[in-house]
Simulated assay, not measured.
Amino acid sequence: MTSLYVDRRDVHLRYDAGAIVFYEHNLRSATVPLAPLTRLIVRGKVTLEAALLGHLGQRGVGVLFLSGRNGDPHLLLGPSHNDIQRRVTQTRMSLDSRFCQAYARHLVGEKLQQQITSLNELRQHYPAQRLPLTSAMHQLQTQQQRLPQAPNLDSLRGMEGAAAAAYFTGLRAIVPASLGFQERNRRPPRDPFNALLSLSYTIATAEIAMALHIAGYDPCIGYYHQISHSRQSLACDLLEPLRPLIDRLCLRMVAQQTLTAQHFSTAGPACLLGKAGRVRYYQAYEENARPLRRAISAQIKTLAQRLNPDMPEPATVLEAPTADKISDWDI
């Protein structure tokens, strides 16, 4: 078990003898050992004692709080890597415009290639939708060919945006019509598939930030996503080439009907995944998260080599030794 999801009202968490102890209505209801955990995701009316937070921090267990009706993310991180030189190098290179542009071009190029690969695979599984998927592929390839000529980061962002519009137009052809997906939208997402994408990107960004922190990098000092108040810019950077992998996970959930339109509801302009849907989502996410976590580790090693080729590769702790067992906890 590497992840623990706590999504329930009126639960109080305490620390006792190397374990998280759950109390409901002042009665002890469950116990989960701390040793296998690498991340804790909390949503709902949940309280945690300071002693528990202290032990989570000591063990390097990142805590993601999804607060409020929309599940706004807030991340707590434990101790970082002791080699401060990594952050010094990271910060210095963020001021080098040539490095920022070269690394950004690498990220966008890898993202577009992954999107093209995904669309090509989808053409084999959905022959009836081959035309819109092929059209989207061709538009992505056009933007991919233009990347070497991008003069600055704004130009890269424009190409990425055009590619994303074409990519999601292709996906629209295979997302079940019952989910009402027409285009990518967010803040808030307005249909079930966009809600699913946004939740998955949020959790993945938190996982990337945790892994960067453990490896000795500041998740907020980025290159493609420049420094901005309250934004984990470097985590956002590394998310870009991983988005197609996350998209495939979301497509799998709806294709296998792990989640259907009935698991979502609307509140004003926002579309929200309900409690029953979240239980199914957490399980499905964990069952399919290992390739994503391997990809996060690979991205961090690539970044480390670009920042300082002579520096030893950072260790990124994404899986505990007992990771073969996936948590099915939903407390």
Rank of each mutant, 00 (worst) to 15 (best):
T47H: 09
L48T: 11
L48W: 10
E49K: 05
E49Q: 13
E49V: 06
E49L: 02
A50Q: 12
A50V: 07
A51D: 12
A51S: 12
A51Q: 13
L52E: 00
L52A: 01
L52F: 04
L53I: 10
L53D: 05
L53V: 11
L53N: 05
H55Y: 13
L56G: 01
L56Q: 02
G57A: 11
G57K: 00
G57F: 03
Q58M: 09
G60H: 00
V61L: 04
G62V: 01
G62H: 07
V63M: 09
V63I: 12
L64W: 06
L64D: 05
L64S: 01
F65Y: 14
F65T: 03
L66T: 02
L66F: 02
L66K: 00
G68Q: 06
G68A: 12
G68S: 10
R69I: 15
R69K: 13
R69H: 15
N70R: 14
G71Q: 07
G71R: 01
D72F: 13
D72A: 10
D72R: 05
D72P: 00
H74M: 07
H74Q: 10
L75N: 00
L77G: 05
S80Y: 12
S80T: 15
N82E: 11
N82P: 04
N82S: 13
N82G: 11
D83L: 03
I84C: 13
I84N: 08
I84Q: 15
I84S: 15
I84H: 14
Q85M: 05
Q85I: 01
Q85V: 02
R86F: 06
R86L: 13
R87A: 08
T89V: 15
T89H: 15
Q90N: 03
R92Q: 11
M93K: 11
S94R: 09
S94P: 03
S94L: 04
L95P: 00
D96F: 06
S97N: 09
S97D: 14
R98E: 14
C100P: 00
Q101H: 14
A102W: 05
A102E: 14
Y103C: 04
Y103L: 09
Y103N: 08
V108P: 01
